[in-house]
Amino acid sequence: MTTLAFATRDSSTMVRRQLKRLIRYPAMTVQLIITPVIILLLFVFVLGGALGAGIGGGRAGYVNYIVPGILLMTAATAATGTAVMVATDMTEGIIARFRTMRISRASVLTGHVAGSVIQQLLSMTALILIALAIGFRPNANPLEWLATIGLLTLFALAISWLSVALGLKSPTPEAAGNAPMPLLLLPFLGSGFVPTDSMPTVLRWFAEYQPFTPIMETVRGLLLGTPIGHNGIIAIAWCAGIAAVSYLWAKSIFNKA
């Protein structure tokens, strides 16, 4: 077998390792969805009336408005779990064992990334189902749904590599739990909960140019038919860029350690 074939085989072995762990401990995945669901319910039922009135469309319109932002937040929450899991894994002797074996080094990380992407997609699916139950009414056709799933998967991949890198960089699992925290704030500091033109200048400038905003705008456009403009391309570029940089970063930390 060639080196590439071995690398592929090792990666699929590591992905299976991660999947077994996820299946055996479903609580690890379930707990990740709790926070985003609470935020969704709080914003819809507590703040939704007032915010919805401000945006126009009332509480019913507000459910539609915030689902894209909460979707990204759901992914980011799951990514926090990944960072903790990676940091915990690094403290275990098993990683030292992997390093002394003739295996593709990145395969250990690939396993975590694949597990993380699956967790994020499951969490986002659960969130969409709950949102549908409380009045989320997307008008997307099958093609638009497919594009949404594609973009969110790409986003999940980017966030997974980023959180794997953050998990590797963290000295302890506790620190790893805090490292991805800013990701949870980005939907707020963008167009996730209120339109950016309602914000003061400096904040609005940040909100419009940070990576989450074009992604949220694209998802909103695909699911609800709002204008997308250049946001689609920008969103894909951000996701690909974050994924590539995080991948190289994670790999270099792992090889150095």
């Binding site: 390792r17 077994k20 762990r21 055996r24 401990y25 275990e92 002797g93 098993i94 030292a96 064992r97 002394t100 074996m101 003739r102």
Partner: peptide, 21 residues
């Protein structure tokens, strides 16, 4: 290093097992 890795086995001080499996 990869040829060395192919020939050796290591059992460290801290157990190198995946405790979740």
């Amino acid at each position: 290093p990869d040829d060395v890795r192919g020939a050796i086995g290591v059992t460290g001080q801290y157990s190198a097992v995946d405790k979740l499996l």
